[in-house]
Amino acid sequence: MATTADNMNTEDGVRRRDWIHIAAVSFAGVGGASVLYPLVSQMAPTADVLAASTTDVDVSALEPGQSIKGVFRDQPLFVKRMTPEEIAEMQEVDLGGLRDAESLEQRLGEGNADILVQLGVCTHLGCVPLGAGEGEDKGEFDGYFCPCHGSHYDAAGRIRKGPAPTNLAVPEFAFQNENVIRIG
C-alpha cells in the first residue's frame, strides 16, 4: 500500500502534522467567519438612512387642541398643542393605575408646557392610531384609538386599554427656538 510511506514518519511526525492541519483549517474557518461580517452588516441601515434622522417642525401656527402630522424616520409623527383642560385632566390621572406609568411632565419634557411630541405608531403592532386629525375617533379616553386591534390611549398618549404594551413613543426632541422643534 502506498500509505506505508506515511506510516513511516508517524511516530515522531504526528504532532507537527496535526498542528499544521489544525492551523490551516482554523485559518479557513476564521476567514469564512469574518467574511460573514460584511455579508450581514450590509443589511443594516445605509448611511443615507442613518443621516436622515432629524426633522424640524414649526409649531407657531398650532392652536390648542390642534395636531400636526409629520414624518420622522419614515414614520408618522404627531405634534399636538394640548388644551388647558386636557393638561389639567391628564395631571390628575393616578399613575398607579397605568400599564406604563409616566406623568404628563415626563412625556412633555422639561421647559415644555403644552407641546406633546410622539410617534404615531401603535406600540402593539405598528398601525397608525386615530385621534390626531379633525373628527377622528379618539377612543374611550379621548386621546388616541388604534383601530387595528383596539388599543385606547389617553390625551397624553398613555395606553389605557387594549393590547398595546407601552405608551406612544416620545422621540428625542429640542426647541431650536420658540417656534421650531427639532426631532431626533
Binding site: P38, Q42, A44, A47, V49
Partner: peptide, 13 residues
C-alpha cells in the same frame, strides 16, 4: 453609487 457610498461594505461587494 448608493451601493458604493451608503451601503455598509457596499464598495467591497
Amino acid at each position: 453609487e448608493h451601493i458604493m457610498r451608503n451601503v455598509n461594505y457596499g464598495w467591497l461587494m
